[in-house]
Simulated scan of single mutants.
Amino acid sequence: MRWWDLDPVMELEDSLFPDDAWSRGMFWSELADARHPAATRHYVVAEETGGRVVGYAGLAAVAGTGDVQTIATARDQWGTGLGARLLRELLHQATAFECHEVLLEVRVDNVRAQRLYERFGFEPIGFRRGYYQPGNVDALVMRLADLTAAPADTRETPGLQGTETTHG
């Protein structure tokens, strides 16, 4: 993800998370720590062949622990395997960052995302009460301790033809 991706990323962010969307400043802050020799962040966007941004994801890495900061796909991409491809990219980068574990938070009412994370070997380890605002919705904290446990590559998953992940 680069600065010029922020307009379409913000459109997607606002449509998917209308009540608790990240601000443009939050994305800028994350990207500021993604492109230098001591970077601790990695952000990617997924684009259709025509250039439409259909997903994005970000990872922070500190002291051997990766943290999935965000992962999102356009609603018309749900069920296509794009979320799995984005997550796989983050886990690949976590390995490059020499992380020994990866953590994430997911809304307790987002069963679809929880299933994705479980397929990759993430296990629940706790809750963060009232983490998502407004609404005071709890977050389920999940952990992946074995980064080699991810399922086989999904690059050839039906429905993903013409979609490419752009690294940045």
Score class of each variant (00 low, 15 high):
Trp3Tyr: 13
Leu6Met: 11
Asp7Lys: 11
Asp7Thr: 13
Val9Ile: 15
Met10Val: 09
Asp14Ala: 12
Leu16Tyr: 04
Phe17Thr: 02
Asp20Gly: 14
Ala21Met: 00
Trp22Lys: 01
Ser23Cys: 05
Ser23Asn: 06
Ser23Phe: 06
Gly25Ala: 12
Met26Asn: 10
Met26Phe: 05
Trp28Thr: 07
Leu31Glu: 06
Asp33Gly: 12
Ala34Val: 08
Arg35Leu: 10
Arg35Phe: 14
Pro37His: 02
Thr40Phe: 11
His42Trp: 13
Tyr43Cys: 12
Val45Leu: 02
Glu47Asn: 08
Glu48Cys: 09
Glu48Thr: 10
Glu48Met: 13
Thr49Cys: 13
Thr49Leu: 13
Gly50Ser: 14
Arg52Asn: 09
Val53Asn: 05
Gly55His: 05
Gly55Thr: 04
Tyr56Val: 03
Tyr56Gln: 08
Gly58Asn: 05
Leu59Gly: 01
Leu59Lys: 02
Ala60Gly: 13
Ala61Cys: 10
Ala61Lys: 00
Val62Thr: 12
Gly64Lys: 04
Ile71Gly: 03
Ala72Asp: 02
Thr73Arg: 05
Gln77Met: 15
Trp78Glu: 14
Thr80Pro: 06
Thr80Arg: 14
Gly81Tyr: 12
Leu82Phe: 07
Leu82His: 07
Gly83Leu: 01
Arg85Tyr: 06
Arg88Asp: 13
Glu89Ala: 14
Leu91Phe: 02
His92Trp: 14
Gln93Asp: 02
Thr95Cys: 11
Phe97Thr: 01
Phe97Pro: 01
Glu98Pro: 01
His100Arg: 11
Glu101Ile: 04
Val106Ala: 04
Val108Trp: 09
Asn110His: 13
Val111His: 12
Arg112Gln: 11
Gln114Cys: 01
Arg115Lys: 14
Glu118Trp: 02
Gly126Pro: 04
Gly130Thr: 02
Gly130Arg: 05
Tyr131Phe: 15
Tyr131Pro: 06
Pro134Trp: 02
Asn136Leu: 09
Val137His: 08
Met142Ala: 01
Met142Lys: 00
Ala145Asn: 09
Asp146Glu: 03
Asp146Val: 00
Ala149Ser: 12
Ala150Leu: 15
Pro151Asn: 11
Ala152Asn: 08
Asp153Glu: 13
Glu156Tyr: 07
Glu156Ser: 11
Pro158Asp: 08
Pro158Met: 08
Gly159His: 09
Gly159Ile: 10
Gly162Trp: 05
Thr165Phe: 06
Thr166Gly: 06
His167Gln: 12
